[in-house]
Design a protein around this nucleic acid. Structure first.
Lengths: 229, 229
DNA sequence: ATTACTAGCCAACGAGTAT
DNA sequence: TATACTCGTTGGCTAGTAA
């Protein structure tokens, strides 16, 4: 089934505008783009482009700031995430890229994953849904910039839902997991379900991966994501 | 720049309909999908879904046939190509998948590529735009079904345009080329610009690849497509 | 049950224009 | 030059209904 609907409600023109803005994007910098320029790019009038920009800003998909009498514009995290999720959906539907590889650098103390593998309700779900009784700790990988788009794309996929739960004091959010292999050892990458992008990949496994593979901070590791999820 | 506009003009709902049809697709078979089913999938009324189906059929993106009192529906080649091109565009914009690998089986007599490398105007363009003075013959690879989506995705990308030309007797069409490597030897894959999908990859190179690598029909070859294009 | 026409409505367009 | 308002128009929606 297509996962239509759990996504920002964006019109055709707004979608094209997001693509155009993304295409002329320069990292985190605001780029100058007048409403008539945008209008030309997506074949609508200056007035419509202006309205579209206002709408996208209201929905939090882009941000703007005054630059002289024109405006600078850039995608927000959620605007970028929208495009990645669109891409992930097409890739799902079309069956492209079922296998993905990501490289990361072993690092300490980056994530909150340790947290997840120490809470019983999560552990039960990991066991049932992933077939992994997790070692009580995660392997944290820092993802270098050249793999950012691959990681974002992965994270935009559906993955396996690990349900959150409520405890006495607070609530624990849903987690999204992706099965993967690290040197033939079955693992899973886990992400908080609702989270902004971070250049970190947290890996859980039945084994203590650091020890098993004699990994040190700074070592490069290849994670292979297999077929569906 | 985004390549908006050289594409079928498809509304938001039509686009969603194409995705929904593609998602429940079963190869070349027509699948049963009533207009109300489609309406539910893409959150429009049965009436709108009906109109959308009629419109998509008129634009040649889907085909339908009567099945009892309901209809069977399937994407046409050009409907599928549309989704792939959408995906390729997003992938371009987002910088995902700049490197792609495709496996193929060495085969004889599959393509018309030999044709291209024997016509002087093409040869001049290959030399100028690809830096390859092509050996007068192509290596033909048959692409197995599990690599089909990768090949389609590649073919949907922009590539390097090799202009066609007119001769006394007939006209020769544009060609789309993608630089690639075969065991570190610089090559290019070439496709007729306007063509339906075929499970064939035609490789040109300065070298006679068959001889250089002692390739026989049936041998498996890995082609690596590097960075942009 | 289907598909798809017609009617009526409304969101979103372009044009004109103020700032 | 910009941005973005108002206004008149219209493409595309839903609802009703014929076949």
């Amino acid at each position: 089934m297509v996962s239509l609907g759990n996504k920002a409600n964006v019109s055709h023109d707004e979608y094209n505008a997001l693509k155009a803005i993304c295409a002329s994007r320069n990292g985190d910098n605001f780029i100058r783009m007048s409403s008539s320029e945008l209008g030309n790019l997506i074949s609508v009038s200056q007035q419509a482009a202006s309205r579209i920009l206002i709408g996208l800003e209201k929905s939090g998909l882009i941000e703007r700031k005054a630059m002289g009498r024109s405006h600078g514009v850039n995608l927000t995290e959620s605007g970028l995430a929208f495009l990645y999720s669109e891409m992930a959906e097409l890739s799902n539907i079309l069956g492209v890229n079922e296998d993905t590889t990501i490289k990361g650098i072993v690092s300490s103390g980056l994530g909150e994953g340790r947290y997840y593998v120490s809470k019983k309700p999560y552990v039960i779900e990991f066991t049932e849904k992933l077939g992994i009784v997790p070692y009580p700790g995660t392997l944290n990988l820092k993802i270098p910039p050249e793999w950012e788009s691959t990681l974002r794309m992965l994270q935009a996929r559906e993955g396996i839902l690990i349900n959150g739960f409520e405890s006495d004091d607070r609530s624990y959010g849903d987690v999204k997991a992706f099965k993967c292999l690290l040197k033939d050892t079955p693992c899973a990458a886990i992400f908080p379900y609702r989270s902004v992008y971070r250049d970190v990949l947290e890996i859980i496994s039945q084994d203590f991966l650091r020890e098993k593979f004699h990994l040190q901070d700074g070592d490069e590791v290849v994670v292979h994501f297999t077929s569906k999820n």
